[in-house]
Design a protein around this nucleic acid. Structure first.
Length: 907
RNA sequence: GGACGGCUAGCUCAGUUGGUUAGAGCGACUGGUUUACACCCAGUAGGUCACAGGUUCGAGUCCUGUGCCGUCCACCA
């Protein structure tokens, strides 16, 4: 074995073998419990980020643990077509070649985009393999696959037939760069420092008299169709029904009253521009006002804005209109104003509220979706996200699902040629289109990407085709066991998947009928949802391409190994908290693997029984008569750890899992047990027993760690001969109780007091080492100790003598009957320990040290005495606590006494 | 404006249902080639648990309020 673990020599080889052996294949097996996960499909042209590493490592841990536990396990991978993002990239690339999508036309553009996707796509799936992800790659799905596309259209058609889908002219969020409508969820509000302009409008019937109105968007004044005041506003008793002159594109517009106007904001007067503001649109509807749209789709002004501004970009036009108003004397005031502006998530430009014909979805099964989570049929980890989810459902708005793009699922609606489109009589809605296509033209728009990915758990398993569902095991694997994703897509994806599952899984249910609890349980797409945190850089900023603060996971794998990366990221991922990334953590993950490697190497150097070491065989190698207290203690700790880790895994407490394993493996097993086994292995009679105990521990540690660090654990599993010719993937760690009973059956009963004993011996060793270190004595300098203790304690010390000596670096630890004078002393729970220094002792320094010790003991004692002197405490506190305090008092008093004696002995 | 989360050692974080003297890793410092590992071992220093009240025999932990940081929702032109 190499001196240090070399991941590169192991990872690719093992991954290839696993894949070849079909380890990742999700076999339907009615004799086993099913365990399934569908991957949150990454953008097909995306590359692996740290977020993916976290997310997919967790999924892999769950999948591998399920396989170990004997489940029929499916982790289903795939990608989504990422409508806007991909189309934008392809268009960009065309533009560089001096072309636009219109030059190609729809068909050829899509062909082109597919080529582009196939060339640049799928990288991320290869990267996931590097990370060790155990996906069933034969079942990789893409949202634009034929079957998947059919499912998406089928869902649309069914929703349409049930009256959930409708077409309408409405105010939507328009992205002037991507030239498409967006859903509310795709709009991000950003605080902006803008200006609030006060503009005057002249009263038509009273020239020279003006009303003042505040606005942040003077470039839309040409679209004003009214001014509005609040009906109860007493400042303007007689304005209603009168008219003002619009200062740009002059026209007479009425003054109206509407409750939506805030009396206390600005001047209390609102200009109404129904084409460019959602609230104004509503008011316009109420008062039957006309709509003047002064903007083009790309955010430039159109001819209704007047020749002077037509063609100008909206932000240039803002400046120009302000100038014009200033010249006319209509600009009264201009002040700084902070407000929130909606930005397009993808293009990162302010969206325009825009009136347009779009397809909308009224969500199905909203009430059942709430019940699914509030009743715990679906469990959220951490639980608190359920509140966010429920709040959204309580305030749910219809979903604008049409996008003015070409890249995506084209809406399966055809209009009769030459007939008015707004009359549903002239519509044909079906998956395959009309039988006489020559008389119809299809809707130009495609569906929002999320309107395809919301079917992910269903459509990846063959829905809606009966044969495919049968073959792909929908009934077996659905509901999936767990979903691992970020809380940022609760609305985009999680909530929608739940509603889709409730609506589409199983036999259709009349929209008016509410689902029963049993139906809900069968239809939900997943049982547990684990929400990861967001990975931030060391300064707490979100990782992003533009900041360049996101490391390339592939570089990290190259440097630290996939296991190192996985271990590192998992150890810093508290449940649901954001994660502060730093490369040092990954380094620690690598170090952990190396430690595992080396303790195995140490074990192998002993060169015995490293073939065919099954659990039974290992236990048989133990000679019960030779078991030391240390053996008892480490086995007890092993059992504790097995139970603890199992519980933590079930709660998705991954960082605690690793912490627990770390403590057992590194602190207890390596630092203490293996160190203390060295003298025994020098040829003591109990060498074989000691090695067997090591094997037992190591074997379980590998099993516990395998989901997290699959490569190194598989490698060592083989090297140490635990395999019996089989991969580690199919063996689960034991429960504490099974190890216990296996030991009992072999005639081994563990002594429960061994644990405490080991801990106090370790404490003693620590103090003795510190006493040496204080005097600048090197660890390996063999010194002599003596101790003064009562018989019972002395017996224990004698029992542990050899490991104390080797751990501390001492030649002798002899019992004395009186305090030796002039020696540095240590008061411990075992009695007083004296360090024999051949050279002179700095008496003053020793006295100082002991006095400090005494003072701190006295402080502790007085606090306990206070407590015990308080009758309220002794009366009300549980007897156990009071008893603990008494015992503690006695112990500390004894220590004081000994310390005083030690002080005396110094002089 | 509303909701949620965070504030514990220089840094990153643990800290179960309130109960001994608040822990770990990293970093710092000191010492170290003992039959694995310097990607290691041993040890030391370092904390008014954000702040203010309250409940309690007892509060990092429970309650109320405040501050700061972060996230989400809403969107007064």
């Amino acid at each position: 074995m190499e001196k240090a673990y070399q991941p590169k020599e192991v990872e690719d080889r093992l991954y290839e073998k696993w894949e070849k052996d079909g380890s990742f294949t999700g076999q339907i097996d009615q004799n086993k419990p099913a365990y399934s996960i569908v991957i949150p499909p990454p953008n097909v042209t995306g590359v692996l980020t740290m977020g993916h590493v976290l997310n997919n490592t967790i999924q892999d841990i769950l999948a591998r643990r399920a396989r170990q536990n004997g489940c029929a396990t499916l982790w289903l991978p795939g990608t989504d077509h990422a409508g806007i993002a991909t189309q934008t990239k392809v268009e960009q690339q065309l533009r560089q070649a001096g072309k636009s999508k219109h030059d190609l036309g729809r068909e050829r553009f899509i062909e082109h985009a597919k080529e582009w996707r196939d060339k640049h796509g799928g990288i991320i799936l290869k990267q996931l393999r590097k990370l060790g992800c155990s996906c069933d790659w034969d079942r990789t799905v893409h949202t634009l696959d034929q079957d998947y596309s059919d499912a998406v259209l089928e869902a649309f058609v069914r929703l349409f037939k049930n009256g959930y889908v409708y077409r309408g002219k409405r105010m939507v969020n328009w992205c002037p760069v991507s030239l498409t409508a967006l859903s509310d969820e795709e709009v991000m509000m950003k605080p902006q420092n803008g200006k609030l302009y006060k503009i005057r409008y002249e009263l038509v019937d009273s020239p020279g008299e003006f009303l003042e109105v505040s606005t942040t968007r003077p470039e839309t004044i040409m679209g004003d169709v009214a001014l509005a005041i609040h009906p109860d506003d007493e400042r303007w008793p007689a304005l209603q029904g009168r008219k003002v002159r619009r200062p740009l594109q002059p026209a007479e517009i009425p003054i109206i009253a509407d409750e939506a106007v805030e009396k206390d904001f600005g001047t209390g007067m609102l200009k109404i521009t129904p084409a460019h503001d959602p609230l104004d649109f509503e008011i316009g509807q109420r008062h039957n006002l006309e709509t003047i749209d002064v903007l083009n789709a790309d955010g430039t002004l159109n001819e209704f804005a007047g020749a002077e501004f037509a063609g100008m970009d909206r932000f240039d036009a803002r400046k120009a209109t302000v100038e014009k108003l200033r010249e006319q004397g209509d600009l009264i005031d201009e002040e700084d104003h902070a407000n929130n502006v909606g930005f397009s998530e993808r293009a990162d430009v302010p969206i325009e509220p825009r009136l347009s014909e779009q397809w909308f979805l009224r969500y199905p099964r909203v009430e059942e979706a709430k019940r699914a989570v509030s009743e715990g049929f679906i469990r959220y980890f951490p639980e608190r996200w359920s509140k966010t989810y429920l709040h959204w459902l309580d305030n749910i708005q219809d979903w604008c699902i049409s996008r003015q793009l070409w890249w995506g699922h084209r809406i399966p609606v055809w209009y009769r040629k030459g007939a008015p489109r707004n009359d549903p009589q002239n519509w044909h809605v079906s998956v395959n289109g009309p039988d006489d296509p020559e008389n119809w033209e299809q809707d130009e728009d495609v569906l929002d990407t999320w309107a395809s990915s919301w079917l992910w758990p269903l459509a990846t398993m063959g829905w809606p085709d009966q044969d495919s569902m049968q073959k792909q095991g929908l009934e077996f694997f659905y509901p999936t066991s767990a979903l691992v994703t970020g809380p940022d897509i609760i609305f985009f994806w999680v909530a929608r998947m739940i509603m889709a599952g409730l609506e589409f899984k199983g036999d259709p249910v009349d929209p008016k009928t509410t689902l029963t609890d049993d139906q809900i349980k069968q239809r939900i797409p997943f049982r547990d949802v684990y929400f990861t945190g967001i990975i931030r850089d060391s300064k707490g900023r979100k990782m992003s391409k533009s900041l360049g603060n996101s490391p390339d996971p592939l570089d990290l794998i190259e440097k630290y190994g996939a296991d190192g990366l996985r271990h590192g990221i998992m150890s810093i991922a508290p449940k649901g908290q954001d994660i502060r990334f730093s490369e040092e953590r990954i380094e620690q993950g690598r170090n952990f693997c190396n430690k595992l490697w080396n303790v195995s190497r140490f074990r192998q150097m002993a060169d015995e029984h490293t073939q065919e070491s099954t659990q039974e065989e290992i236990i048989n190698r133990i000679n019960p008569a030779q078991l030391s207290q240390d053996d008892h203690a480490i086995l007890l700790r092993l059992i504790q750890t097995l139970d603890e880790v199992d519980k933590l895994y079930q709660q998705y407490e991954f960082n605690s899992v690793l912490h627990s394993i770390y403590r057992f493996f590194w602190n207890d097993l390596c630092d203490w047990y293996v160190e203390n086994s060295k003298p025994r292995m020098r040829g003591g009679e109990d060498k074989h027993t000691c090695l067997a105990v090591q094997d037992l521990c190591l074997r379980q540690v590998l099993l516990l760690l395998h989901p997290v660090t699959p490569f190194i654990t598989e490698e060592l599993w083989q090297v140490l001969g635990f395999s019996g010719g089989q991969s580690i993937q199919w063996t689960s760690p034991d429960k504490g109780s099974t190890i216990s009973s296996a030991l009992t059956n072999a005639g081994i009963t563990l002594d429960p007091s061994a644990l405490d004993e080991m801990l106090s011996i370790r404490e003693l060793v620590t103090s003795m080492r510190a006493l040496k270190a204080d005097r600048n004595l090197a660890n390996n300098k063999q010194v002599e100790f003596s101790f003064l203790a009562e018989d019972a304690k002395a017996e224990i010390l004698t029992k542990h003598q050899s490991s104390i000596l080797s751990s501390v670096g001492a030649a002798e630890l002899k019992r004395v009957s009186a305090a030796p004078s002039g020696m540095p002393a240590l008061v411990t729970s075992f009695g007083s320990v004296y360090l024999d220094l051949s050279s002179g002792v700095d008496v003053a320094a020793e006295k100082n040290r002991l006095s400090k010790e005494l003072a701190s003991l006295q402080k502790v004692i007085s606090s306990i005495e206070n407590k015990l002197g308080n009758s309220a405490f002794t009366d009300k506190a549980p007897a156990q606590v009071v008893e603990g305090a008494r015992r503690q008092l006695a112990e500390n008093q004894a220590k004081i006494k000994e310390t005083e004696e030690a002080l005396k002995a110094l002089s």
